[in-house]
Every structure is written in structure tokens, then in C-alpha cells.
Write a protein that binds this DNA or RNA. Structure first.
Length: 300
DNA sequence: TGCCAGGGGTTCA
DNA sequence: TGAACCCCTGGC
């Protein structure tokens, strides 16, 4: 007899080597992953997405009105993936609140399956330090090389060996020269090792940041070398679930100038505008606009 | 073929 | 405030 549970209005059914989220709305892996919030996923030939996180490898695919998650079970879903995919949040209600904004309506129509992931803080911090003045394919390659070199093997899935992201302790002990040589992260090498050291030594506590308000948490994150305003805002949004955080990169800058502000302004002004305009869900609005704007090259 | 600009920013002067 | 920064890719 296959087990079936309900979690917050979502019906989850145990299937062979995985689970099915039945009739689930606002959840499409092809909107969630290519949006630059995560870097440890890959597209398979059958257009499903394989993800490495929390020392596990899972595979997701939208099939009709369901989302199929392979290589997992009900326990992992309730303990890990429910939070990871931000399933306690009512995206239907958020979309209703954002209605009336013409640009956002177009963006939500385009990327309606987006969700803001709640990723592991250390991995998110390091990957966004690597993202500075970098490009997504290269970031993904570097992060994979870090995992292969310093992380433990998670075994084979779909013919490939996968590796966990290493701990701060392991990365703190790595030599800067070796990190540069192996992972191709260039001048970001020292920032990655030094940040790992600050965490491994206990000088900065990533767990404590969960108890801070957004402004305080942002200041704390900016203590790390390689973390400026943009990287801090990304970590707040994608790891700590501060959905009022509004990261402004070159794309968001262009998109906001083109669709809303109608004149060139500084990144800081764009950030202030976004938070003022979209309030406590600014980060989610940012994700819809980013996906829509980048895929359609708005402002470029 | 080979050169050059530019990229999900941050740091240092 | 502005240049420099690793490395890689796409455009010419």
C-alpha cells in the first residue's frame, strides 16, 4: 500500500524511488532553477532537473499538474524539501497581491512556477562570493569543481557521480593557490578561503543570522571578504528567506530602469525603489522580474 | 585565426 | 569615485 500524506494543502504520494506532489500550483523546476538563485543543478535529457543539496541528490520534473521528485522519500520531503522549496508560503496569495502591476502581471504569467529557494547558508554565501563579476556557466563549473575536490561523494545517480558541498572547516584549510589552480575562481580564491576561516573559527556565526532582522543580518554578512551589498542581499533572499530583500545586479538595474524608473539611476536607488514599490515581498517580485527580463533581454 | 570586450561585484587607493 | 581583478566566451 503506497503511503499518502497531506502537507499544507499539498497531497504527496509515495511512488517508486520517490514522491509525487499532486495537483501542485506555482511550482515549476524549469522556472526555479535557471533563475540564478542556485548553481548545483543540471538538466537531463528528459528535461528533468537533477539537484544536489543537503548531502542528497534528487531529480524533479513537472508532469501535467504534478511535480515528480525522484530519489527521495516522504521523510526527506517533510524534513528537508518542504522548507527548501518554500512550500509553506502561499504563492497564490502573493500573486494576487502583486496583481494590478502591468509589468509584474506579464512577468508572473511568464514565470508562474517560480519559488524562492531556502538554501544552505554556507554554500549560498560561497557561491555568491564566486558570482562577483562572473558568468553563470562559469560559476556553476567552479562550484562543481569545489564539490568534486573538497566535498564527499554522494554516489552515482543517472550515470554521474555527485559530490556534497564541503564544510567551512575543509575549505578553510585549503591553500589559496590550490583553490585558484583547481577551481578556476581567479581573484575570488582568497575571499572564499578567508570567509571559510571566519566561519570555521567561530568568529562569525551563520546560524545566529537567522535570529536577526534584515538590516542587522545584512551588516553581519558584509563582514565577510567578498561580500558587498549585492551578494549580501542574495544570501539574505536565497538562504535566509528574507523575502523583503531586493538584490540589484546589472540585470535588475536594467530591467527596473526600463520598465519602471524610465531613466538611468544608481543601483542603490533601484534597491530603494524596489523595496518601496513591492514592500515585504520585494524579493519575490524581483525573482519574477529577473526571470522575465533576462529571458526576454529587457533593457539590453 | 586572433584580438578584445564584458560579465549576477568587491576591494583598495 | 574609479580602476583593477581571473578566466572564459562570443563577436568581429
Amino acid at each position: 500500500m503506497l503511503k499518502c500524506i497531506w502537507v499544507n494543502k499539498v497531497k504527496i504520494i509515495e511512488i517508486e524511488n520517490g514522491i509525487a506532489l499532486r495537483d501542485i500550483e506555482h511550482f515549476d523546476p524549469s522556472h526555479i532553477f535557471p533563475n540564478g538563485q542556485a548553481f548545483r543543478w543540471s538538466v537531463e535529457e528528459d528535461e528533468s532537473y537533477t539537484l544536489v543539496a543537503h548531502n542528497r541528490v534528487i531529480n524533479l520534473k513537472r508532469v501535467g499538474t504534478d511535480v515528480i521528485i525522484d530519489n527521495t522519500n516522504l521523510d526527506d520531503f517533510t524534513e528537508i524539501w518542504y522548507d527548501y522549496f518554500d512550500l509553506s508560503r502561499d504563492y497564490g496569495e502573493i500573486k494576487t497581491r502583486l496583481k494590478g502591476d502591468v509589468e509584474l502581471e506579464k512577468a508572473m504569467e511568464y514565470g508562474g512556477g517560480l519559488r524562492v529557494l531556502k538554501q544552505e547558508p554556507f554554500e549560498t554565501l560561497i557561491t555568491f562570493i564566486i558570482s562577483a563579476n562572473n558568468q553563470i556557466p562559469r560559476i556553476m563549473k567552479s562550484v562543481e569543481l569545489i564539490a568534486q575536490t573538497y566535498g564527499k561523494s554522494l554516489g552515482f545517480y543517472r550515470g554521474r557521480e555527485h559530490f556534497a558541498f564541503p564544510s567551512p572547516e575543509v575549505l578553510a584549510k585549503a591553500s589559496v593557490e590550490e583553490v585558484r589552480e583547481i577551481t578556476r575562481i581567479g581573484f575570488r580564491d582568497k575571499r572564499v578561503v578567508d570567509t571559510s576561516e571566519l566561519i570555521a573559527s567561530g568568529e562569525v556565526d551563520l546560524v545566529k543570522i537567522f535570529d536577526m532582522d534584515r538590516v542587522e543580518a545584512r551588516e553581519e554578512l558584509m563582514k565577510f571578504p567578498g561580500v558587498g551589498e549585492k551578494v549580501a542581499d542574495c544570501v539574505l533572499l536565497f538562504a535566509y528567506n528574507f523575502v523583503d530583500s531586493f538584490p540589484v545586479d546589472v540585470w535588475v538595474n536594467r530591467i527596473m530602469e526600463t520598465l519602471y524608473i524610465k531613466e538611468p539611476v544608481s543601483k542603490k536607488e533601484v534597491g530603494d525603489y524596489g523595496r518601496r514599490q513591492f514592500g515585504d515581498i520585494a524579493g519575490i517580485a524581483q525573482q519574477y522580474l529577473f526571470f522575465y527580463g533576462r529571458e526576454n533581454k529587457i533593457g539590453k
